[in-house]
Design a protein around this nucleic acid. Structure first.
Lengths: 318, 318
DNA sequence: TTGTAAGCGTTATCAT
DNA sequence: ATGATAACGCTTACAA
């Protein structure tokens, strides 16, 4: 059945017909036992609900399926211990490779995977100092560039709305990028212009209110993800702050609504498809060639839209 | 290792310590071969990107993991043949159960699963006429009620923005529900007030423009999903149509933005978590009790918000 | 080109 | 309570 071309046409026919008559189908478990390869890849994501994870999973699954692999999914809920636990279970299931998000993991994971000889690819980050094999955008670099874009427009006073960095090296990298760019221009973000919270549009609204408690107000507000940016923009609309004249707002990642609101939102696009597809490719290469995979840096494209522009001279009054 | 309590404490200790010293770990493939149960559940979703699928997957995965099962994910891209192909591959992998979306599938699937004795649960639909075991909301009933709500407000002229019903019995059920409710009141939707298209906010905008090509205009526009409703609302805003005074807009499913726009959008909430969790429970019950599963109807809650209200007397002029 | 047998790591059934 | 042994269905190496 596996190498039909190595056999006479007559026998091939005979075998095939009997097989279908008997309703024979290969047994994956037996094959896995005999070959010690399961044809499955495990992936652990912090969540499936926010971010570009679903898109990446879909591309990952598609590319794996094209190569005869099946995808096992687990969720860590942004918890390193849960991630370890899920990895352990996936390894017991016999996955041939692992896809993880970010570069910081429980310390036991490396050792475990070494023992099982299971290759790992780190995704949604590109930080060669932290991980050899990663596929994603360089979060820090992306925010460094995003911040410079705003500073070059003339902004001097910045607000930063950040999602929690707990067990999230991607989010931390973004903040680092902002601070690096500002430090080079001797600008600091005062504490009252920095607000950290959870996810979501609603949270973006309340974080924006936090940085507007008292003047002087920032002229540019950088959000570490798309939902916060949407929330910040909607809250400006409610407070009748004109965007971008009185305040520029930028985000990260693209979600459809950003391009569809009356004021479209400047953001950085990193293709989830690209991350997913290349994660699969890098992993498959590692499986074939048994060597450490080549990292892949995904492009982070700055999409300049309505919500950002040069600051006004006259200050915002609330 | 499997029944440590059946063994003397001393031996248990001895075995455990040797096992860890040797770095022993169970081998899933061997176990699957011996028991002919893999501890995996397969799920095939039409897409991971739109709809409440990611949320349901997360809940499904969580509930399965709690019971020692791992989730295998596949995507059908709204294509019955691809769905069959994915099911076939999952069965070869030895899944113990299957989660599918909707009630209409390729005809071979039933037969295949019967042969493998693999139970199936149909999700995101509740239509006992079509499938014995389903977990979800009754799409038709939900739209029947949604339409009656609008009609009871006094609306007589309806527009319907629908996502494509190609291989999508859920979307078809929604349309059927609207038509049923209107038929009972001897109202028909004229062709120019019916627009069918693909997914997405952008599509919602263009579909709305389609039903506004010439008067008389509908006073209420029903959208078969959340993204279309958001698009329709934003387009009204752009066209300076006052919502709900000049036009009511309602959707289906809840996405965060609906409650955060300046005009919040009336919709029907079906909890993706509920669907996912109960799919897992029903499937696990079938695996335990080897009998056909009890269907579970998920509640569809009408969330009345800003975007719907009674129609105005004076007609909309564009 | 075709047939044969050992072995993959468990579980389950049987003796002890 | 503990130990030995035959499956489970496939792959692979080797013999015919």
């Amino acid at each position: 059945m596996n190498f039909p071309e190595q056999v006479s046409a007559e026998l091939r026919e005979r075998v095939q017909s009997v097989a279908t008559k008997l309703g024979w189908v290969p047994n994956g478990a037996a094959r896995a036992l005999a070959t010690s390869r399961s044809g499955t890849i495990g992936a652990v994501f912090p969540t499936l609900i926010f971010g570009d994870f679903p898109r990446a999973i879909q591309a990952l699954q598609h590319e794996l399926a094209r190569n005869g692999y099946t995808l096992l999914i687990a969720v860590s809920e942004y918890d390193l211990d849960q991630e370890l636990e899920q990895v352990r279970k996936l390894l017991e299931r016999g996955v041939d490779g692992l896809v993880l998000v970010g570069t910081i993991h429980h310390k036991d994971i490396d050792e475990l995977c070494k023992r099982y000889k299971v290759p790992i690819v780190n995704t949604f980050a590109y930080d060669l100092a932290r991980a050899k094999t990663c596929v994603g955008a360089d979060n820090k670099k992306a925010f460094y560039r995003l911040t410079n874009y705003l500073a070059d427009l003339g902004h001097q006073s910045f607000g930063l709305l950040a999602q929690t960095t707990l067990n999230n090296d991607r989010a931390q990298g973004r903040i680092d990028g902002v601070k690096l760019a500002l430090a080079e221009r001797s600008i600091a973000i005062p504490p009252q212009h920095y607000a950290e919270g959870r996810w979501g549009i609603h949270e973006g609204k309340s974080l924006l209110r936090r940085v507007l408690q008292q003047p002087p107000y920032p002229t540019a507000v950088i959000c570490t993800n798309a939902y916060l940016a949407v929330g910040a923009l909607l809250e400006c609309q409610r407070l009748e702050i004109r965007v971008p004249e009185q305040m520029s707002i930028v985000g990260y990642d693209e979600i459809e609504i950003m391009a569809e609101l009356p004021i479209t939102i400047t953001t950085v696009r990193v293709s989830g498809e690209e991350v997913g597809q290349n994660s699969a490719r890098v992993l498959l290469a590692m499986l074939r060639e048994e060597q450490s995979g080549q990292p892949h840096e995904c492009s982070a494209e700055l999409l300049i839209r309505d919500s950002s522009g040069p600051p006004r001279r006259d200050p915002l009054l609330l």
